[in-house]
Design a protein around this nucleic acid. Structure first.
Lengths: 327, 327
DNA sequence: GGCCAATGTTGCATCGTTGAATTCAACGTG
DNA sequence: CACGTTGAATTCAACGATGCAACATTGGCC
């Protein structure tokens, strides 16, 4: 009963007689033997581990997305290691260079501080899928919604309600990842099409996407000269923060202020009022991202052309822009 | 320039002349060499990876906790792999037996379906820290808040407001993990001390801890004979679901119905009204859990006695139990 | 009986790293 | 000048699993 035979039994690889198979299996069960993954990885050159790099796990959007990705990875027998970058460029860079050693077979990254250019250059050798950010030279796959179109729809919805003083919360001019900029562009495009000139004082910059910042930005808007009658927040968290502040100031939502968010996090379905939002198909984002990664990992040499997948989204109209609350 | 010398330079271990060190370092930088973690793990018998097993990543409480744990692990140069059990006993068991191979040096698990007895028996050889669930024979470390005392405080707070018809949402009699039971016990204890006999029809069982279930339970309470004037929900998510349903039925919070939750998730700070809650010190839970795990991993043979750490908690009174909304 | 094919099992070598032991060179001392 | 001492670099072996080739066994065929 050599080690080689045991290996054959465990992997069901070579021809093993039924008799030996059973004898080996018994021994395995009895001794509680488990194959050593480190050794297996060393031999195979693969670890079966993929990395997921997101800004923050505690943010509902990324929490929900991470959950879906982990489940999808399990379906493919992959294990996921999660790293939080906290929007720190250095952390993102360290992740890519594999500082301290290469463990991951591939990486799904939602970039924040680094621009795609640097991402792709630094992480050259690592199969990689970008969430949200566009890859410049088609060096890495990318999965994202059409932010411009989605923001346009959201804003158009507010215009259709008769609102004209529509503010935007969520600009991040100092960031490289481009998402905020695209949503801002969609917002402005919709305004212009409706003949409403975009006004800089209605575009609120934020330092983070937390509720707190949404509240701060809303306060700034209310304290500013012309109070808006609608707000398009670039994320649901910002929207919920804005609604919270509106409540504390006695501003009624949606009567005095219509609010639209982006992400369709669970909170928005149960908030008071419920939150109208742009809902990206998160399940599909997870599935497609892993599909891309698998393609890239399993066909290493052939220059697989980078795919740029646009995921469908949907505007969910709820209480924050309509009369009574819809579920 | 042998492999051994390179190893010495990388680890700074043995005596290496300054000259060779530089020569090696240059080569490393130029070739982009990274040590192979699989080989290192194989040699060392350690992977530097710990597992985190939680029911669901998308739940805000576990999302926040996971984020803190990941950060704390990074401070200790550990990598975290995350597994979602979805409350599935089989998934928890598979995790413990290391089905398909042993990767993790240790495991932090928030048990759901399995009772501690089985957990400890099955995962005998794996350093393990339990979150929430008590370990019977002191075979594994445990980190948790004093659920009974905390639930007592929450209920007592409602009693102090003059409420007497206090319902509880969140019982899970079919589960083994004991947390819900402890909170129920604290709830009943407080009622009895105040001379209010616990009434079975005010104890609402739930299938999950999602907002949806909180809403369902609240509906059941309102549709039942005697509508309660207060609710203690065993988690913030249940509480938010309950508040949502109250709003849709025109029940005012806190005037008609006072609500207390448990967990202190971010949503509760920005909901309308803001949510009174029991706040466990999550940062400390994360820090202590990793400390325990480190102790156990780094002193393998010595039977380190299992520690049972009680983490402090705090009742945060907010809008859902007071007049206007406090932040 | 001798030879080949099919089937089942084993041994060898290897993945990359590192502990332990070894070689090599330079230097100081009696 | 012979010899011990110290510092620096190298070689050897091993961690555990597995691709590959070799080996053993059996049965069938001419």
């Amino acid at each position: 009963m050599s080690a080689r035979t045991v290996s054959n039994v465990v992997n069901g690889s070579a021809r093993v007689s039924e008799q030996t198979r059973q004898r080996v299996q018994e021994a395995i069960d009895e001794l509680g033997y488990r194959p050593n993954l480190a050794a297996r990885s060393l031999r195979a050159g693969r670890t079966g581990i993929i990395g997921l790099a997101i800004p923050e796990l505690h943010s509902p959007y990324f929490g929900e997305l991470a959950g879906l990705l982990v489940d999808e990875a399990r379906r493919r027998s992959w294990t996921v290691i999660i790293d939080q970058t906290h929007g720190d460029a250095e952390a993102e860079r360290r992740l890519l260079t594999g500082d301290g050693g290469r463990v991951m077979d591939g990486l799904i990254i939602s970039p924040w501080a680094l621009e795609a250019q640097e991402l792709v250059t630094t992480g050259r050798s690592l199969p990689m899928v970008l969430l949200g950010e566009r890859s410049p030279q088609g060096m890495a796959d990318r999965v994202a919604v059409d932010n411009i179109a989605a923001a346009d729809e959201a804003t158009t919805h507010l215009l259709a309600l008769g609102r004209r003083r529509i503010a935007a919360i969520g600009l991040q001019p100092h960031l490289q990842n481009g998402t905020a900029e695209q949503r801002a562009e969609g917002y402005r495009r919709a305004l212009r099409r409706a003949g409403v000139p975009p006004r800089p004082e209605w575009e609120q910059t934020v330092d983070s996407l937390h509720r707190r910042e949404g509240a701060r930005a809303m306060a700034a808007l209310l304290d500013g000269g012309a109070a808006p009658d609608a707000v398009f927040a670039f994320t649901d968290e910002l929207a919920l923060g804005a609604m919270h502040l509106a409540h504390t100031r006695g501003v009624r939502v949606p009567e005095d202020l219509a609010v639209v968010g982006f992400d369709d996090i669970e909170d928005g379905r149960f908030s008071h009022p419920t939150l109208t939002t742009v809902s990206p198909d998160k399940r599909q984002i997870a599935a497609r991202a892993l599909q891309c990664l698998a393609d890239r990992i399993y066909s290493p040499d052939n220059e697989v052309p980078a795919s740029d997948l646009t995921i469908p989204h949907q505007l969910l109209v709820r209480g924050s822009t309509s009369g009574p609350q819809n579920p």
